[in-house]
Design a binder for these strands. Structure first.
Lengths: 212, 212
DNA sequence: TAGATTGTTAATCGATTAACAATC
DNA sequence: TAGATTGTTAATCGATTAACAATC
């Protein structure tokens, strides 16, 4: 069992390492990666242990090999396909955001109940009416769902996604979804996040640009 | 010092309580609130202790009074004002999303470097050129910044927001921001979140609709 | 070698949960 | 009263950090 925070850090390391590669670096020490990612060097070493990669005391870690190890650990070699439900402002923005960002993990279908928003291609993603959800999920072997519908419809959409065969959900609706225990749900609660920032801004609380 | 997770849970309780109020309920027990929010009853009782409210063994908690206590604890009585920087797809969607959602915490200014996107009103929010950031932040007493610019410009925007007087930042750019230690940063990393869902979807990992 | 870094365990820290006397 | 729930502490759990022998 690997913790959610570890996954987040590994993803962060990978991005930092790719930046370093772009700058022409070939090796990196734990304390350098730690500083760039805003964590401790011991944390970096432990995380790297987790993915099964080893460095050397003299040269630290070889960046390209480490990126590869993280990829082997995090990514599905066959790639993963996601579906987005709710092509409103936020849904559309997410389609634009994810378009072409990670070839191995792309949104391959969008769904909406508004007839004017379906049977179109939005930022490279085809949109379908809600009724076709199950068949499209099966046809395209989609395992991840993104929910960007209003609160009232979120639970129903979650149920349909799960019934269609999705195993994980990224939920932007501010509601606690009820799903079977083998389905993973990650909530991004925009209002709560903004409230939290306002709260700590007022408290003058220290947190820095750290992963939490 | 109050943990970030506690704030998240309190915000979630408040939303659930408001739903219950809307359904005509006046009292609630810790286990009921716990089930709705996806946490344990002991956790709920401890969080309610934190905000300084007390229930009774016979009737549980009075919902309206509890909502008030949470509000006293979380909200600034004078309200908080936020600025958003980067009126692209995501920035525009966030302006729409937050418009009118919480009167006590609203986005009152947007900034963009594109001349075509400034001096307009977008979902009720006025947009300004980047150059006016400091003066607008000061004029409107803005304490919170939201960064929705591309990665390359994010650090510079953070520096300007902080220089202008912002004390907390909600950052959507996938980069670790360097800010003074008294500035709070909350990162929403959309790519990492989607990667995380894909990872656990593959693992068949249990997480349920829980706050983490 | 000397010096710095790695891999890895033990110690620490903080958050969550279990438990239960007090209470209604 | 009897039964259920609260407030609150102690126990547990898990994650992070410190430390250091092994290594280059």
């Amino acid at each position: 069992v690997i913790s959610s925070k570890t996954i987040t850090r590994l993803s962060l390391y990978r991005r930092t390492l790719n930046d370093l590669l772009g700058q022409g670096a070939s090796n990196v020490y734990s304390h350098e990666l730690a500083q760039a990612a805003g964590v401790t060097a011991a944390q970096v070493r432990r995380d790297i242990m987790t993915v099964g990669y080893s460095g050397s005391p003299s040269h630290g870690y070889e960046i390209s090999a480490l990126v590869e190890s993280i990829g082997t650990y995090l990514d599905n070699p066959e790639g993963d396909r996601a579906a987005l439900v709710g092509v409103g402002n936020l849904g559309g923005a997410l389609l634009a955001f994810f378009a072409g960002r990670r070839p191995r993990l792309s949104i391959v279908a969008a769904f909406d109940q508004d007839p004017r928003k379906v049977s179109r291609v939005i930022y490279g993603c085809r949109s379908y009416p809600m009724e076709e959800m199950s068949s499209v999920i099966a046809d395209k072997d989609i395992t991840v769902g993104v929910i960007t519908v209003p609160t009232a419809g979120a639970q129903e959409v979650a149920d349909e996604l799960v019934a269609g065969g999705v195993r994980g959900i990224l939920n932007f609706a501010p509601v606690t979804l009820r799903v079977p225990t083998n389905i993973y749900v990650e909530n991004i609660d925009l209002t709560t996040s903004l409230e939290k920032v306002a709260f700590y801004a007022r408290q003058g609380q220290l947190e820095r640009g750290r992963v939490r």
